[in-house]
């Protein structure tokens, strides 16, 4: 039975069939991966670039990043704080006005996300001297936000290891006390329980 099937598939037409099936499976996989990398559909095509270039700080709309775990995504009332004084024009602003009129929250889709079993806290990262763009990329070139890189564990750990490595950048005088501190910090920052609990 299996031998018979093998004989059928070994003919030229059979080989072409196998090739076509392999091609379909491969392209399906590529399409699936591409879909997973696409930024999600947002209710409003929010132009980050315009707002950043007008000089609005990241922390004005995402204030939680300074002190808490989550920066927060603004509600329609925060947008309206400025936009009630600005003419409602174009394609996106009427959508905002409709949300405000109906007293509905804007159902933003979070993009920079980690899974449920990861507990990321923004505060220590800001306190360690990181800027928003170090992880979130140059938002002044984006309309709808897109992650500049895949936010996976390897990416997190690369930074944790680099920031605690005993090298001239972190320890310019090669002080053994600083080296011990960096070592302890590295153990702590590469510990599973730092993020997973």
């Amino acid at each position: 039975m299996i031998k018979k099937l093998f004989n059928v598939l070994n003919q030229p037409l059979g080989r072409i069939g196998i090739f076509i099936i392999a091609l379909v499976v491969l392209s399906g996989a590529v399409w699936g991966i591409a879909q997973a990398q696409k930024p999600p559909q947002q209710p409003i095509q929010f132009p980050h670039n315009l707002h950043v270039r007008l000089g609005i700080q990241c922390l004005y709309c995402h204030p939680g990043a300074l002190r808490g775990p989550s920066p927060g995504i603004p509600t329609e009332t925060k947008c309206w704080g400025c936009h009630q004084q600005i003419a409602i024009q174009g394609t996106e602003l009427p959508k905002l006005a409709a949300y405000v009129k109906n007293n509905q929250p804007i159902d933003w889709v979070p993009v920079a996300q980690v899974p449920d079993f990861v507990h990321f806290v923004h505060r220590p990262h800001i306190a360690a001297g990181l800027n928003c763009e170090d992880c979130h990329g140059n938002v002044s070139n984006m309309t709808v936000y897109q992650n500049p890189q895949v936010m996976n564990m390897g990416w997190c750990l690369n930074c944790h290891r680099a920031k605690t490595a005993n090298n001239p950048q972190n320890n310019p005088t090669n002080d053994p006390a600083v080296a011990a501190k960096l070592e302890a910090l590295r153990v702590k920052l590469t510990d599973c329980s730092t993020c997973h609990y």
Binding site: P115, F117, A184, V187, K188, D191, C192, S193, H196, Y197
Partner: peptide, 15 residues
């Protein structure tokens, strides 16, 4: 099931 070197705790990494 791993050991935390920095705090000497037992950890369970669910994922």
């Amino acid at each position: 099931s791993v050991h935390s070197l920095s705090e000497d705790l037992n950890l369970q990494v669910y994922n």
